[in-house]
C-alpha cells in the first residue's frame, strides 16, 4: 500500500464486511515526533482466537479464499518493518481492535496520504455505518463523529449532495 490511509481504509472495509455499525479510528503522532500510531476499533461480529491468528498469515487467507484477504498481513508487515508494533484483538460478538505503530523516521514509512478523501469516501459510501475519527498530529487535534452529524441532519441522509459539499468543505477547513 502506498499510503497509511489506504491501510486504514482497508481495515475499515473489513469492519464493514464484519457488519460493524460503528467504527472508531484514531491516528496519533506522539509529542516527541517518534511514533505514528493507528487504531481501528469496530463493533462487528468479531473473530475467534484461531481466526484472529489466521488473518495475520498471508498464506492462509489467499489459499482458502477467505473474505479477509492480504490487507492485515500487509499492514502488520509495514508496521513491523518500519520499527513499530502491531496487534489485533478480537472477540466474537463484540468486535475487533487493530493497532499499528510506525517509527516516523523510518525511511520506508509510507506517507500518511490523503486523509481528507479517505474520511469523506468512507462516510459517504457507508451511510448506514457510524464513524468517529480522532486525529492528533503536531499538537493539532481533529475529531469528527458521524452520529453528531446525523443528529443535526434528521431525516436528510448523510450522502445527500448538499451534505457531501458541506463535509468536503468542513474537512478542508478543519483537518
Amino acid at each position: 500500500m502506498a499510503e497509511i490511509c489506504a491501510h486504514i481504509m482497508d481495515v475499515a472495509a473489513n469492519s464493514i464486511t464484519a457488519e460493524a455499525k460503528k467504527v472508531d479510528i484514531f491516528i496519533t503522532q506522539d509529542k516527541n515526533q517518534v511514533m505514528l500510531t493507528v487504531k481501528v476499533i469496530d463493533d462487528g461480529k468479531g473473530m475467534t482466537r484461531e481466526m484472529s491468528e489466521k488473518v495475520q498469515d498471508p498464506f492462509f487467507s489467499t489459499k482458502t479464499g477467505r473474505k479477509v484477504g492480504l490487507g492485515i498481513p500487509l499492514l502488520k508487515g509495514t508496521a513491523e518493518h518500519c520499527g513499530g508494533d502491531f496487534y489485533l484483538k478480537s472477540k466474537i460478538g463484540e468486535g475487533t481492535e487493530i493497532f499499528a505503530s510506525f517509527a516516523l523516521n523510518h525511511p520506508d514509512l509510507p506517507p500518511l496520504g490523503n486523509l481528507r478523501d479517505t474520511i469523506l469516501v468512507m462516510i459517504i459510501s457507508n451511510p448506514g455505518v457510524n464513524f468517529s475519527f480522532s486525529y492528533t498530529i503536531n499538537g493539532k487535534e481533529f475529531t469528527l463523529d458521524t452520529e453528531e452529524i446525523k443528529a443535526q441532519l434528521g431525516d436528510v441522509p448523510i450522502n445527500h449532495p448538499e451534505v457531501i459539499k458541506f463535509l468536503g468543505q468542513y474537512l478542508d477547513e478543519n483537518l
Binding site: A2, A6, A13, V121, S125, P161, E162
Partner: peptide, 27 residues
C-alpha cells in the same frame, strides 16, 4: 473496496463519484 481495489485506486474513483454527485446535485 477490497484490498486490491483500494491498492488500485478505488478511493479516487469514489471521490470522483462523490464530487460529481455533489456538483451536479444528483440526489
Amino acid at each position: 473496496m477490497g484490498t486490491s481495489g483500494i491498492a488500485a485506486g478505488a478511493r479516487e474513483v469514489i471521490r470522483a463519484f462523490v464530487d460529481e454527485i455533489a456538483k451536479r446535485n444528483l440526489s
